[in-house]
Simulated scan of single mutants.
Amino acid sequence: MRPEILNSGYRPATRLLFAMIRLFTRQPVPDAAKLVFYRPEFYGNAAKEFTHEAMRGPSAWSVADRELMAAYVSKVNRTAFCVGAHTATANRASGNPTRVAAVLTDPESAPIEEPLRATLRMLGKLTRSGEVSAADMREVLTAGATRQQVEDALAVCAAFNITDRLADAFGFAVLSPEGFDAGAKYLLKRGYR
């Protein structure tokens, strides 16, 4: 259920920012932005910092890989807005939409490295069941991912399991391909802050 407050409950400075976004991008402001700006002191500021660190902080995973993880977790959750947003961002970051589509269709047969494949398998299991075992972690490490890469992937998974649930709970509108592409450009230039 989409609360009307996400359309109108903003301070004047935020309304001005949204007007500028619409003017420069010629696209609607994504509901994800509306949510983080609605009550920034309660949710938005903390969510932006956590997500920015997970997606753009130091990591052996590339930005493209982390965006692909976000799209994959969102696909497992069947959250259309986040699948669209992070598929567009992974496409732009990687420059390889064919690879991104292959991973989202079937990571087991996609042309990706084994550490990423094993990591996606583990993230999918964690997202579906809410738990993973020591054996699941050993599989990822044996495939060549480092402990730090596992931690970084888990941070991406946590960020997008939260965001996906909020997107579904608040009924985030699915953007046009142009809207998702405009968002991808922004996310790659400015990150999640």
Rank of each mutant, 00 (worst) to 15 (best):
P40G: 11
G9Y: 07
G183H: 08
A134N: 14
L17E: 07
A47F: 13
D168V: 03
T98M: 10
E53A: 14
S133K: 08
L104E: 04
E49Y: 02
Y192S: 05
V100D: 02
V150T: 13
G144A: 11
P28A: 11
A88V: 03
M69P: 06
P97A: 11
S129N: 13
F18K: 07
R66K: 13
R99S: 06
E151S: 15
E114F: 01
A155C: 13
S74T: 08
A173W: 00
N45V: 06
E113W: 01
R39P: 01
A153I: 04
A159Y: 05
S176A: 11
K189M: 07
A101W: 01
E67S: 12
T119P: 02
T127R: 09
R22A: 15
Y192K: 09
T142E: 14
M1E: 14
Y186I: 12
T87V: 06
V100K: 03
P115T: 02
R56P: 00
D31R: 04
E178S: 15
R15V: 13
K75I: 00
M55D: 07
T119E: 01
A88P: 10
F180G: 06
D181M: 00
P12S: 10
A90I: 04
Q27M: 13
G179M: 05
F172R: 02
A184N: 11
F18L: 03
K185F: 07
E131L: 09
G84R: 01
E67G: 09
L126C: 10
Q149W: 01
K125P: 09
N77S: 15
T105A: 15
S8Q: 14
R190W: 12
Y192H: 14
A71W: 00
A47L: 09
K34N: 05
S176D: 12
R92K: 15
A167H: 09
A167G: 10
Y72K: 00
R165V: 04
T14A: 14
L23N: 11
R165Y: 05
T98H: 13
G130N: 08
G124E: 06
T51F: 03
S74I: 06
I112A: 09
A90F: 06
A118I: 00
V83G: 05
E178M: 06
K34L: 14
R22L: 01
P3M: 05
L123H: 03
L175S: 07
A184Y: 07
V132Y: 15
A167N: 12
T105M: 00
E114N: 12
A19V: 02
G57A: 07
A118W: 00
L141A: 14
A167D: 03
M69A: 14
R26V: 07
L17D: 06
G84N: 04
S8M: 04
P40S: 10
P28E: 11
K75H: 09
D181Q: 12
A33K: 07
A169H: 08
V29E: 03
T25Q: 12
T51L: 10
N161F: 00
G9W: 04
E139P: 04
F170A: 08
F81Y: 15
V36E: 00
D168Y: 06
L175H: 10
K125N: 09
L126H: 10
A88M: 05
S129T: 15
H52G: 12
